[in-house]
Simulated assay, not measured.
Amino acid sequence: MKSRTKRGLIIVAGLATLAVVSTLVLNAFQDNLVFFFSPSQVATKEAPADRSFRLGGLVEEGSVKRSSDSLAVQFVVTDGAKAIPVTYNGLLPDMFREGKGVVTQGRLDSSGTFHADQVLAKHDENYTPKEVADTLKTTAYKEPSAAEARQ
């Protein structure tokens, strides 16, 4: 073979390898991509029905129900306009409280209940996800103050 032909084959093989590697990386990225939705967005069917996603909002006051014989817990996440029931089986973060911000990751079932695989509580008084804060402002929902939450 001529050196020109060898060089052409090496370039074509390199491009093919680059295309395969790029495809594998993008597929792995797509599989691990998780979007965030507020309860209002979930209620309007903006959230994917066939994929895991994150649901964020405030834990509705008086909605937490713990199982006496397991780690199962049920609560409601709200953004002031809509509320979504959530079930979770596991240990909750120490900062998890009624009236406080929470982000859950999991899937929505056909009945409208969100089955969480992971629950994340907000870590300080100043953090609320932007989407949730925007929705809370439009619905005039008042988050309890720190003094009210301690009671």
Score class of each variant (00 low, 15 high):
56 G>P: 02
111 S>M: 03
46 E>P: 01
48 P>K: 15
24 L>N: 12
54 R>P: 00
46 E>K: 15
28 A>Q: 15
60 E>A: 14
94 D>S: 10
79 D>K: 03
8 G>E: 11
28 A>T: 13
146 A>R: 13
99 G>D: 09
83 A>S: 15
29 F>V: 14
30 Q>L: 14
17 T>P: 04
79 D>H: 04
47 A>V: 05
67 S>L: 02
13 A>W: 07
26 L>H: 12
77 V>Y: 00
63 S>P: 10
7 R>K: 14
6 K>Q: 00
28 A>H: 12
3 S>G: 04
95 M>H: 08
133 A>E: 11
66 R>H: 12
146 A>C: 04
52 S>Q: 12
131 E>W: 01
71 L>I: 02
101 G>K: 04
18 L>S: 15
143 E>G: 05
57 G>S: 09
6 K>S: 01
63 S>G: 08
29 F>S: 12
102 V>K: 09
43 A>M: 06
85 P>T: 01
113 T>K: 01
8 G>F: 02
85 P>D: 04
5 T>H: 06
149 A>M: 11
103 V>T: 13
106 G>C: 06
80 G>D: 06
7 R>S: 06
76 V>Q: 02
87 T>A: 05
24 L>E: 11
89 N>I: 00
61 E>R: 13
151 Q>R: 12
86 V>W: 02
134 D>M: 09
6 K>T: 03
70 S>T: 14
19 A>I: 13
81 A>F: 04
87 T>Y: 02
69 D>A: 11
75 F>C: 03
109 D>H: 04
34 V>P: 05
119 V>E: 03
10 I>P: 02
110 S>D: 13
24 L>F: 12
7 R>I: 01
88 Y>R: 05
13 A>V: 14
12 V>Q: 12
89 N>L: 03
70 S>W: 06
24 L>H: 09
21 V>C: 11
99 G>P: 08
44 T>P: 02
13 A>D: 07
19 A>Y: 07
142 K>M: 08
99 G>N: 13
17 T>D: 06
114 F>P: 03
35 F>R: 15
146 A>F: 08
21 V>E: 08
42 V>K: 03
22 S>H: 11
139 T>G: 05
29 F>P: 02
94 D>W: 06
10 I>H: 08
78 T>W: 07
100 K>H: 08
120 L>I: 10
84 I>G: 01
131 E>D: 10
50 D>W: 08
109 D>F: 01
78 T>V: 07
23 T>S: 15
66 R>N: 13
